[in-house]
Nucleic acid binder design. Sequence first.
DNA 1: TGGCAATGCGCC
DNA 2: AAACGGCGCATAGCCA
Length: 850
Amino acid sequence: MSRKCTECHSGEKVQGYGNRISPPIVFVGESPGENEVREGRPFSPRGKSGQLLHQIMKDLDVDIKTLYFTNVCMCPCRGAPPADKVHMCYDGLMDELEALKPKLIVPMGNVAAKAVGQYEKGISFVRGSYRKLRLGPSVTTGVLPTYHPAAILRNPDLFRDLLTDLEKAVAIGVEGRPAVIPPPYEDYEPIHTQEELEAVWPKLEEAKLIAVDLETASRYVYEDEILIIGISYAKGKCASFDWALFEPNPLTLQGKRNIKRLAKLLKTKKCIFQTAGFDIAWLWSRSVFPNLWFDTEVAHWLLDERESGHGLEPMAMRYLSAPPWKAQFRTRNGLGAYIASEEQFGAKFSAIPQDDMMMYNAADADYTRRLAMLFRKEIKKQNMERVMRLVMDATKLYTELFLEGMCIDMNNLEALETKYKKQIAEAEVILEKLAPDVNPRSPKQLSAYLYDQLGLTTFGDLPADGAEIPMDVLSKAMMDVEGEDVDADLYWKTSRPALFSGRIEKGSGLSSRSTGAFTLFWLKRQHPYPAALIQYKQAQKRLKTYCGAIHKFMWTDGRIHPDYRLVGHLHGRFRSSRPTIHNIPNETDIYNIYCAPPGMTILHADYKQADLRLIAHMSGDQELVRWLKGDPHAEVVKAIRHLNDEQLKELEKRDINEFRRSRLAAKSINFGAFYGRGAESMAPQLGLTVKEARLYLREYWKRLPVAKAWMDSRFSELLANGQEYIGPFGNKRRFPLLVSESHRWRVGTLGVNFPIMSSVNYLTTMTHIAVVKNLRAVGIQTLVYPHIHDSINVCVPEDKLQEAAQIIKDTMSQVPIDAGFDGVTWPVDVDAGTHWGSMVAVENLFESST
DNA sequence: TGGCAATGCGCC
DNA sequence: AAACGGCGCATAGCCA
């Protein structure tokens, strides 16, 4: 029963292998690798991919001998088989599968998924979704695509997805469990009339836990409408209401009465949401304030801290064998399988037949409630209730920011845009004169022009052959020209020379064909083009990204409404978009685009050296605790230069520039050393040779042996703890699969990075919540302004400034102590101003009056 | 034409 | 031996 292949003649072929009589699962790979060819067997357990697959199946208690393994292409090819080869192999593969009559086919990787299941989208999108496949007149089977094991070895973060999919494959193929359980549409109740509302209401009032889900036409809370509200009150039960029932009606008072009842219901029940921030923004703006009890997205992200996979549909498909009901709904209503443009989507969404939308909405609410029942047990079991509560409280805080928005000073914005446009135009004159055909926004064209046409050389006069520049060459080159160019010195001392990719197999370092700013500051010594290019790029970035965002995301109220995403960050930080406010350039002009509402002042507060304090607290290093009572960066200068206090003071008097340079270097050591940064990478920023940097680091660690020991123990703690890091708030970063030495090293550094980064974030969040609460407790009107990792912002009335500043200072210093972070003190800087870029330290503000 | 990965750069 | 973490957004260029 071997597979025939007559189309191509490219050497050795590897036939399928395993149980040929109705196997419960057939695995389909791409094409045989080295080991597979040697052994004549796809997914050979002696190859790395095969080994991983066999191990997982063994762990799932599946007898390997019952399974079957094959590839799309029988002959080996480097990398993924090209389309023409797949085409040639297609008929043979289908004949093979038809003869096997498998219960389930698991295509592994993009090529196999597309060949077997005819999936249109990439593997990361379609993985884990089940389809039926007709193989012949009498043979129908199921398909469940997943990643290729080789992809997991390259990107171990995907391991959990592979495992999930294979568990599902075993459930379907081996255990015969149903692949898909449709939602109980017949039990969902569409509510159009007052009579129907009255009939169902008692059921809602009897429930303890309800899941709530809204359908709206867009994201514009103040302009658009709520279409439907679904309330699931028991497993498989949901009432889906026409929102018109809750709209105030000039003819009758019924709408007003109904929304009061709704408000009371949602306030007294424990409410469950998926992505609560969205729904409560709409409800709050209609004066409905639900008792936010559980958020399924937050819960799932805490249980799986990776970026994606927390959508309602993937979760319900995974945990409840749901069909892709959202995709089906969108397809039958002409919305496309996925959302293309939000505006288009909104318009079409409003035109959908109401009953259809109600069924869709009811399924959403029902699945949300059912997932909450599952997740809450797991959250409890994993001892994550504290961080769960905190993130949900934060949801409410940043929904306030989203609804209220931030004020924009249009005059400042316009002036700044004019300035950038002028800078761009100036630079363009030079760039076009020198190279009219080169697009300065194209790295490809730039490297061809700078290196091939002009023949410029990079750091250390190396030829631009694309090789990585060794760090000591980089450092030496920069040291040779130190002091000749102040701008370049500053840039090099404060920026990193290379981009580091998340993938572990990729190296790091600076390409000798780089066209980034770091290299341009070197090239500008050789030719006028790079200097103009630096100006062009800087102004372009600021104009397009930071000014452009304001226009792009401003609502009709003239404000911007940043959308805080509290989940999806590997280390528990928060993110914002539309626009992002976590990466605004630290420049007065740009921050001054943002201002307080009339009559109010922005108060900004941040912790001094928050991450160093966390390290000191968590490691218990008393020397670091001592440093933090004074100036930790000066302490590092003393350590690495072997100075005592007096000698340091002398240095400051004798050579202030040298003192500052040393302090800057100390700062990079303080911030880099704990995150695993090595001498090679630090040397350029320290203005040292690699050898000198190594000595500096050695002196640094000599002074902090306890902290060093803590840092070095992280990886063994991971291994001792089920391959999980647990942060002080109970949040987790999991590494279920360690694939190589370099991966283990990287994971070790993350063991330091993760608890610090997440704890700084959560401490600051607790503080933000407490500050707002304490200010309001004494009757100060308070607006929530952004949280940025280790700093918070609020707006208060101008005449309450001094009182508010004191409350903030007291609250911020105390919150970490009360939360148990009492190994160190938590000093705070507080600034105030009507514009975000022109803030003054409050001490200075009130000096004259006190 | 739109999806996608890559390049580059802004922040803590 | 290697060797800095996390993110969002704009742009170009390749591919279906």
